[in-house]
Simulated scan of single mutants.
Amino acid sequence: MVTSATKRPVVLIVEDEFLLRTDAAEMIGNSGFDIVEAHNADEAIAVLEARPDIHVVFTDIQMPGSMDGVKLARFVRGRWPPIKIVATSGFVNVGTDDLPEGSRFLSKPYRADQIVAALRELTAAA
């Protein structure tokens, strides 16, 4: 039986590049988090509407679809304020005012220890 005290934090990975998404999922999953994956912002919103257990959205900035990662981050913060945001990009430089307060930005290529440290810090109170 899994109790809330032993439940692993759930991270929604939003990345349109399949290999980057699977690498991130393996890296994050091996570090003690449960993983849910989405290909773009629209898929991510559908997951968030269906799953109230998401703690963190780990999103790429540049994605095809109705919104990029910055717009997704703002949408998530507006609709699900407790959910934490980690955004990443290899091409876009994101300033502190671009993302919702309390969000983290990691530039690609990122290291596993950077991701895990950010996720652990954001989920420490979860």
Rank of each mutant, 00 (worst) to 15 (best):
T88Q: 06
V14D: 06
R8P: 11
I28Q: 02
V70P: 13
F58H: 14
A73D: 10
T22K: 14
R8G: 06
G29I: 04
R120W: 03
V76S: 01
K108Y: 06
A50P: 14
A118L: 12
T6P: 05
L106I: 14
N40R: 05
R21E: 00
E15H: 06
R74A: 06
R120S: 12
E26L: 13
P81Q: 08
A38E: 01
R51P: 01
D23W: 01
H55M: 01
I28S: 03
K7M: 08
P64E: 10
L48D: 02
L19N: 12
V57I: 03
D60K: 07
I35K: 02
W80D: 05
G29R: 04
D60I: 01
G102N: 05
I28G: 11
I45L: 08
D97E: 05
E26M: 13
D98H: 07
E49C: 01
S107T: 14
S103Y: 01
G95P: 07
D23E: 04
P64T: 10
N30L: 00
K7L: 09
E121S: 15
D97K: 00
V57M: 02
W80P: 07
P52M: 08
S66K: 15
L72M: 10
R79L: 06
E26F: 12
V56W: 03
G65P: 03
M27L: 15
I115D: 12
E26G: 14
